[in-house]
Design a protein around this nucleic acid. Sequence first.
DNA 1: CCGTGCGGACGGGCGCGTCCGTTCTCTGAT
DNA 2: ATCAGAGAACGGACGCGCCCGTCCGCACGG
Lengths: 210, 210
Amino acid sequence: MSDTILKPKASETQREILIVAADVFAAEGFRNTDVQVIADRAGVGKGTVYRHFGNKEQLFLATAQYCMGRLEEHVTEQLEGYPTAEAYLEAHGAADVLRLIARACAQFYQQNPLYLEILIQERVEFREANDPLQVLMRKNTRAGLDKLMETAIKSGDLRKGKVKSASDAFGDLLYGSLVQGSVDGDSQRLVQRVEQSVELLLNGLLASPS
Amino acid sequence: MSDTILKPKASETQREILIVAADVFAAEGFRNTDVQVIADRAGVGKGTVYRHFGNKEQLFLATAQYCMGRLEEHVTEQLEGYPTAEAYLEAHGAADVLRLIARACAQFYQQNPLYLEILIQERVEFREANDPLQVLMRKNTRAGLDKLMETAIKSGDLRKGKVKSASDAFGDLLYGSLVQGSVDGDSQRLVQRVEQSVELLLNGLLASPS
DNA sequence: CCGTGCGGACGGGCGCGTCCGTTCTCTGAT
DNA sequence: ATCAGAGAACGGACGCGCCCGTCCGCACGG
C-alpha cells in the first residue's frame, strides 16, 4: 500500500500521478474531477491510475496525504536544525516557536495555494466515514501543540490558563487566517496576514488587558 | 379550510423547499445531493423545485442566502434593543461588543450546525465565478467590523495598530473556531470554545506583552 | 513463449433538467 | 351561492450526457 518507495519505477509513476491529481482536484473539486483528465495530464491510461490507487476516493486520499506530508516536511525544515519544536521552544521561547510554526504553514500554502484547496476539499467530502486522514493528522499536530503550550505556560512565557484553550485559539486562528486569506485573493500576502494575526493573538487586542 | 395547509402560497412552498434543501445540502454536500431527494422530502415534485429556483446551483445559492439571513437576524436580536453594533459599542465598550458578536454567531451555529456546513460548502463549490453571495456577504460584515474596530481603536479601548489587521484576526479566529469546533464533534460546546478563544485574543497569550 | 505492466474503449448507472398531462385557484357571470 | 372556464401551479416519467470502474488486447522483457 504505502510502501511504494520500494519500487522506484512504480513509485515514480505514482508520484507523477499524485502531483497531477493534486492540481486537478484542487482546481476542479473532488466531484467535478474526471479521473480521465488526471490520467491524460499525467500521460498514462486511466487503467494505470486505477491499478495504482484502486478508486477515485483512494486516489484523492493519497493525494491529500501527499500534500500533508509535504507541509510537514516544510515545517520541519524551518526549524533550522532543531530536531523538534520542543527543542526550538527551549532555545527561543514560546512566542517565537508559535511565530515560526504559523509562518512556516503560511509560507507553504502561499507557495502551493492548491494544496490548501485539497485540505478544504477533504474536510468537506470526507467529514463523516471515520476520516482516517484529516482527523488523524489533526490529532497528531494537536498533541504536539498541546505539549508545546503546556511547557510554555509552565515556563511562564504564556499566561496561565487552560492548555487546550490556548491550543484551540492558536490552531483556529491559523486555520481561519489561511483559509480566509486565500479566499480574499491576496494569496501573495498570506504570510503577512498570518504573521499579523498571530502577533495580535500573542499580545492581545485590548489596550489594557485584565 | 385544511386545504390552505396542503397547498400554501408560492412563497410558503419556496420557504419549505429551502428549509429541506438546507438539511439535505448540509448532510450530503452540493455535488452529492440529488434534487429529487429534496423534492421528495419537501413533498413536492422535482418540476416544482426547478420552476421556483431555476437549477440546482441557484437553489443552493438561495439556500445559502436563507441561512445567512437567519444568522443576521439572530445576531441583530442579540443586540438587546440597540439598533446597531456601533450603538452597543458606545454603551458597553469594545471588548463586550466583540464578545457579543462572537457569542451570537456561535450560538446560532450551535443551534443550527447544518447551516455551518452550508457556509463551508458554498466556499468550496463557488469560490470562483464572481461569487455574488459569500464574498458580498463578507464585504458587508467586514465593512461593519472595520468601522467597529476603528471606533474602538480611536476611543482607546483597543491597542493601536492597523484596523484591517485587527478585523482580520478577529474574523479569522471566529471562522476558524466555528469550523474546527464543529469538526471536533463538540458542537454542544461551540459557544464555550468561541468565547474562550475570543477572550484569549482580547487579552493575549503572552504573560508579558510587548 | 510466457508473464507482467499498460492503456483506451466500453458498459452501466446516476442524476440534471425538461415536458406535458393533471390539479388547483381565481374570476366573473348567472 | 354556484359554476364554468382559463390560466397558473404542480409532479413525476423520461431523455440525455457524463463519468466511474472494468476488461481485454498489446507491447515488452525475461
